[in-house]
Each structure stands twice: as structure tokens, then as C-alpha cells.
Amino acid sequence: MILREAENELRMLAAQFKAVAVTGPRQSGKTTLVRKVFKDKPYANLENPDIRRFAIDDPRGFLSNYPEGAILDEVQRAPVVG
């Protein structure tokens, strides 16, 4: 029941905004939820050092790889850009 409510809320928010942040405690299913709702979106995990370095060193270049949007996981690992 709760998961279904979260899915519906996430879909509604995504229809209204260009970006939506999903926050919560560790290991609570945030990534699973987002990947289920946005199956068609590419996934980039900033825990990967190469991906994180690209995002930090060239944020515009990094984001240009995702013109239709993406799931960006662990973004807190690159809190300051530029």
C-alpha cells in the first residue's frame, strides 16, 4: 500500500516539475522506487568514481548525455560543482 502511494506521488510530481528529489533514510528503497517508476530513464550512480569525476569536472558535458532526463543516484557525493 505505501509503495503504491509513493509511486503515484512520484509520478504526479514528475509530471509537474523538471526535477524531483527522492530523499529518505539509507536502505529504505529510494533507488528501487525511482528505477521502477522511471524504467525508461538512464541510470547514473555517482558512487562510481569515474562517473562522479565526470559530473564534477564537466557538469554540462555530463548532463548533456541525458537530454531526456536520467536517474542520478548518490548525488550528495558531488555536492559542489564549479
Rank of each mutant, 00 (worst) to 15 (best):
M1A: 11
Q76S: 07
I71G: 03
V22R: 05
T31D: 02
Q27H: 07
I51N: 05
G61L: 06
V34F: 00
E74H: 06
N45L: 08
P42M: 08
E74K: 01
N65T: 13
P25V: 10
R77D: 07
A6E: 04
Y43E: 00
S28P: 01
A70E: 00
D58T: 08
N8W: 11
N48M: 11
N8M: 11
D57Q: 13
L13K: 15
T31H: 03
L13W: 14
Q16A: 15
A6L: 04
M1D: 06
R53H: 05
P67Q: 13
G82R: 15
Q76I: 02
A55V: 08
V75S: 03
D57I: 04
Q76Y: 03
Y66E: 09
E68C: 08
D57Y: 12
G61D: 04
A44I: 07
T23C: 14
F17S: 12
Q27W: 09
Q76P: 06
A6W: 07
F17K: 12
G61Q: 10
P42I: 10
T31L: 01
G82K: 15
N48I: 14
T31R: 05
P25L: 13
A6R: 10
P42S: 07
P49L: 05
P42N: 07
K36F: 01
A6S: 06
K39N: 11
P59D: 10
L72D: 00
A44T: 03
L72E: 02
E68K: 15
Y66A: 08
V22A: 04
Q27E: 04
L3D: 02
A44F: 11
E68S: 12
F38H: 09
R11K: 14
V75T: 05
R35D: 01
D57F: 12
P67Y: 13
E47M: 03
R77F: 01
E7V: 15
A21I: 11
K39A: 14
G29C: 07
I56M: 07
A19Q: 06
F17V: 13
Q27M: 06
V22Y: 01
N65L: 15
A21M: 11
R60E: 08
K36V: 05
F17P: 01
D57R: 07
V81Y: 12
F62Y: 11
Y43I: 04
A15C: 06
P25H: 10
Q16S: 14
I51Q: 00
